[in-house]
Amino acid sequence: MSRFTDQTVLVTGGSGGQGASHVRAFHAEGANVVIAGIDVERGLALAQELGERARFVRLDVTDQAAWQAAVADAQDAFGGLNVLVNNAGVQNPPAPIEDTEKARWDNILEVNLTGTFLGIQSATPALRRAGGGSIVNIASTMGLGGTAFYAPYVASKWAVRGLTQTAALELGRDRIRVNTIHPGVIATPFITEPAAGAAAPIADFYSPDPFAIPRLGEPADVTRLLLFLASADASFITGSEYVIDGGLLLGPALQPA
């Protein structure tokens, strides 16, 4: 079943670990895919791999003009835009608040929060012209509770929650649904490799052994949920948050002695 035949989907951070998984799955379900990101080499390679119905656009999500150009490119190439996935994000190296440089704070908020804001703002007219559609913002379980040493990232993902719910209220009457996915520890370079300036990856701090489902998540786990939320199967869902973390936030799954 091809849920996205004749639809156009734009995915930011589209050549990364989760992003590439999302792009491939949308394409397999019949969508025209716009792979948006700053890694030109990987983005072009993915577009070439997929072939027909796929194209790469260079997009710095903090650049409003670049956003407008990316949306225009999607419309020019494929005739419209139906789904936006705000997937691009960056993390900070772990540091206490008192040692976090303002420049680091500004960069994380600019990419993770302002980038999402600009995506919603830029895509809305195109989605409205298409008769409605779906926006899915990829947040994090760190946006649902405090996490020591990751203040910029945590703050950015908490704010994405409020932005998502506000956009859902504003756009619902235009048949544009806006939802959030909060992945836990997913086995991608974002988690398994150190952030710039960090000595160790986030995965080093999160052993899956105590999780109710004792493994790291895979990009495909997130992708399957994303496809549902972006599709007509979720036509009555907006402003909602979906956690996909193997039970991380539930606390340890204690075993009898």
Rank of each mutant, 00 (worst) to 15 (best):
E110G: 12
V111W: 00
L113I: 13
T114M: 05
Q121L: 11
A123C: 15
A123E: 12
L127F: 12
R128K: 12
R128C: 15
R129T: 06
G133Y: 04
I135D: 04
V136M: 15
A139P: 00
T141V: 15
T147D: 06
T147K: 10
A148W: 01
F149G: 02
Y150E: 01
P152I: 08
A155N: 04
W158R: 00
V160G: 00
Q165G: 04
Q165L: 08
T166S: 10
A168R: 10
A168H: 08
L169M: 15
L171P: 04
L171G: 15
G172I: 14
R173Y: 07
R173H: 03
I176M: 03
R177V: 08
N179E: 01
N179T: 15
P183D: 11
P183E: 07
G184E: 09
I186F: 05
A187H: 01
T188N: 00
P189R: 11
F190H: 09
I191F: 02
E193G: 10
G197A: 05
A198N: 14
A203S: 04
P214L: 09
P219S: 05
P219G: 09
A220M: 09
T223D: 14
L225G: 08
L226A: 07
A230I: 07
S231L: 15
S235D: 13
F236E: 10
I237K: 07
I237P: 03
T238W: 05
S240K: 12
Y242F: 06
Y242W: 14
